[in-house]
Design a protein around this nucleic acid. Sequence first.
RNA 1: GGGGUCGUGGUGCAGCCUGGUUAGCACACUGGACUGUCAAUCCAGAGGCCGCGGGUUCAAAUCCCGUCGACCCCGCCA
Length: 593
Amino acid sequence: MTATPGGWRRSHTCGELRAAHVGQTVTLMGWAFRRRDHGGLIFVDLRDREGLTQCVFNPATSAEAHAGAQEVRAEFVLAVQGTVQRRPPGTENPKLPTGEVEVQVSQFRILNESKPLPFPLEDQTEVEEAVRLKYRYLDMRRPQVLRNFVIRDQVYRAVRDYLHAQGFLEVETPFLTRSTPEGARDFLVPSRLARGSFYALPQSPQLFKQLLMVAGFERYFQIVRCFRDEDLRKDRQPEFTQIDIETSFLDRDEFLPIVEGMLVEVWRRVRGITLPTPFPRLAYDEALARFGTDKPDLRFGLELVDCSDLFRGGQFQAFAQVVAGGGAVKGLRVPGGGPLSRKDLDGLVEAAKGAGAKGLVWVKVNPDGLQSPVTKFLEAVKQPLLARLAAEPGDVLLLVADQMPLAATVLGRLRQELAQRLNLVPPHEFRVCWVIDFPLVEWSEEERRWDAVHHPFTAPRDEDLPLLDTDPGRARAKAYDLVINGQEAAGGSIRIHQQAVQEKMFKLLGIAPQEARARFGFLLEALEFGAPPMGGIAAGLDRLVALLAGEESIREVIAFPKTQKGTCPLTDAPAPVDPGQLKDLGIRLVEEP
RNA sequence: GGGGUCGUGGUGCAGCCUGGUUAGCACACUGGACUGUCAAUCCAGAGGCCGCGGGUUCAAAUCCCGUCGACCCCGCCA
């Protein structure tokens, strides 16, 4: 076995030569990153996965090599043999780890040529994403892109090492499975052997991991692809990767520290950062009240403050009526927001309306008094209002009156947007928290029934169990989300492990017994054979890696991602198939009406 | 399904508002010069269906309509 025609073997990588190697004869293999031709002297920066090494082609060393190097172009694949030498004084490159030395080339081979590139491989140049994705294999040669996949690899390993050390068993579950109701749209796979029937790709291994608990595996995990046929975002792809975990015999407060330990280990190994534990916990109601969202970004303040009582029965009719009708007035203090122009403030009003509010009241706190479209209505509550929001001259106050949770969520969006705009978000900080005590169900107006907030297998809190019969909307679930910098990074729950409770839940959700039997009777049956108490979580691996890499979009940390329309510019998937394939499956295409 | 931004040589952009030269700049590319560069430099050159289709006009990269595509957002995502 030889690495190249002629029997050369790579002796070092392009990232490892140092002053200590001076005098050694080495063989490097890699890509010609850049060539600098001085006529009498040619420099080629040879790049491989590990780094960059300057190779010098000097006719005094080898006229043949020097002549050959003139043919070299960007991204030619080279094998280079020569002597490591210290660079002449004054020509060292402190920007390169290998910058103290260079390889004086005595002979080299062109292992392969390359066409001119469709785009430059420099890190700093911005190239349209569709072009990058069409030539993703070239894009990935950029050190910045490679770095993201090194981080991803470190995350895989940290997760596996940690969970294995904690006694978790790694198990694979099927991709070809059956469609389940609720949740996202399924990707369907037609069956040839059972014509007219379809597999569904899993939205998550939810049911299987519960079966593994019934099986007595006790601690399971899997780094697994999940599929959801919904519209894409920068943090959502049709196929994405979850760290899926399930445990037996642990209640929430025993389980969450295990997950915290995993996150701590990942952040420690990848970023050298020690996340403080335990992670703070926020009840869902509290998160909504203080931040106007169930995934609060804790890197900055701008907390929402309830001002409802200040306006109850007051002369500001618009607000007083909302409060009288059971709604709330939520306030947000924008410190130093004074410079916001009338146009900015009008923009905020529009944004609030766009988010569903009937309106937004802004108040400038000037040294000589309040300035607002509704100043005269505010005079009566001026002092308590300023005190409630801890306002100071130069601030801007934003007030939204509406039903809860709308009043809070509207202001929550403005909070996020203003933090961005006013540069209040520290760029290199990680703030992690748990959001717990989610509602179990919420009323769906359009379907006229209760919907599971998390999923139908989530257990209600024990003390809320009676509420299922009397006031389901007030029942809280044993569910939890892990939120990092305002992003949902993981979500899970303690499951229902008693068949009677599960059936009650289905009944509440309007899933008829026959339908439940038909759809996942196998799970209900399993629950009758001694199912242990169980609970787990699923973490979005792509989002974790993006956070660790400082990338905005998970596409930057997925090897071959899809565009926003779900296509792959590289393979041109999805694509029509051969009529014979359709015939095998018993599928006939119909024209759109 | 809806809203927004964008689409101009291989890449990144300018020109478009206010229609009228040979569509301009940088990088890449090709040829030449050059023995210490590292975003090498200098000289010369080639390269354009201005996304696509229609309309207005004497005349369209530019104005209008439609359409396709990329990205961001809303809806959607248990």
